[in-house]
Design a protein around this nucleic acid. Structure first.
Lengths: 210, 210
DNA sequence: ACCTGAACACCGTTCAAGT
DNA sequence: ACCTGAACACCGTTCAAGT
């Protein structure tokens, strides 16, 4: 796993091949199939492996615990930029589950139960996943011109994108990613105070989508 | 693009090869390289292509517009289960940008500006991306036992996962994905009412992560 | 129990050549 | 301007065989 993570960090997902991993371990590529069924298994294991880096401290004040874990979670995903994109696989290894337990236990100490608890858990998970995926994408893509291209596409046609122009969307100099993440975190935690924050909107059916 | 999306829907990301796409178009695989530089280009184009399916209605009441777009966005991603995982690429085609403009314009009609506007935009985007990615993953993985395995892993050791057991985490029968998504949406929209919902927590530094 | 060697089917991509 | 054909380097994976 250390060897696999090392290759992934240095050469990305496409850089990890059964042959390159085998070389790092001084064996033949085919030898790996004794320990693993498929290449996807290697990546699944590597993903759960890096979550071991997220330390689980002694529980203290619940909001502090939630913030602490969320930031550590995010840091790990950004330290291994190949990781967020791999969430397109069911990643439910023991390390991941242990961290989820820690998070949800903090939330329930905060008084959340049932639907409210489930919604907040998902909201938090989606926030780390979504932001880490987006950021890692731009960090990983060697071509920094892509963000600039899109930004130019926006500024080039102010009448088509009035709001995006006014708000400075995709303008890297305007808002800092860390700050956007933490303010989002603040907002989610704020919904845990207001009773009935998750009460349905009058004309909203929970089945409308499908 | 229609041919590419068709293959992707039926056979997934790994099912789309330059040769299979060429076959669908009755040309040689090498012919595609006249129109496109790399296979990744094909997927980038296909991704932006399906966002054309998200209709942009006439703007009405701003909260209604936000809900409408978010649900349509989510529906598209789930209709094409290969799509969420592809967000690990910078996806900033014209269709995607037009939808983002629509969303942010609704939010600013709701009175959001500056940092508050940026935070809410990211929160909403992360919510669709995160939830669609997670759901599509389980929907796409032919093996339904994975979720069950993890669920069993939780229930098998109640002392290690007391909260996850009590809350029914990963229990598909307990909460419905559509409902979790919409309640999350409700919660995010609720933060737009409270002034200073994004005010920083006392002992929070926005630079702590790196 | 764990590893090697040879082999298979299949990739993305290049490039010279055709029309 | 657009497509073909042959070819290259490189995949993941299988399987019989070794120790």
């Amino acid at each position: 796993m250390d060897a696999a993570v090392d290759i992934l960090d240095r050469r990305g997902t496409s850089g990890l091949t059964m042959r390159s991993l085998a070389e790092g371990l001084d064996v033949t590529a085919t030898a790996l199939y004794w320990h693993v069924n498929t290449k996807e298994d290697v990546l699944d294991l590597a993903f759960d492996h890096i979550f071991g880096e997220v330390a689980l401290p002694e529980p203290t004040e619940w909001q502090h615990d939630v913030r602490h874990l969320m930031k550590a979670w995010r840091a790990v995903l950004l330290r291994h930029p190949w990781a967020p994109a791999w969430i397109g696989r069911p990643v439910l290894g023991p390390h991941v589950l242990a961290r989820t337990e820690f998070l949800q236990s903090a939330l329930s100490r905060g008084g959340l139960t049932d639907l409210h608890l489930a919604v907040t858990t998902h909201l938090l998970a989606n926030h780390v996943i979504g932001s880490a995926l987006t950021e890692a994408t731009f960090r990983r893509t060697s071509d920094p011109g892509l963000r600039l291209d899109a930004r130019r596409h926006i500024t080039a046609d102010p009448t088509a994108f009035p709001t995006l122009n006014a708000s400075g969307h995709l303008d890297a100099n305007r808002w800092n990613d860390d700050e956007l993440f933490e303010r989002g975190l603040d907002a989610i935690l704020a919904t845990t105070h207001t009773k009935n924050a998750t009460a349905p909107h009058p004309n909203t059916s929970s089945r409308a989508t499908h």
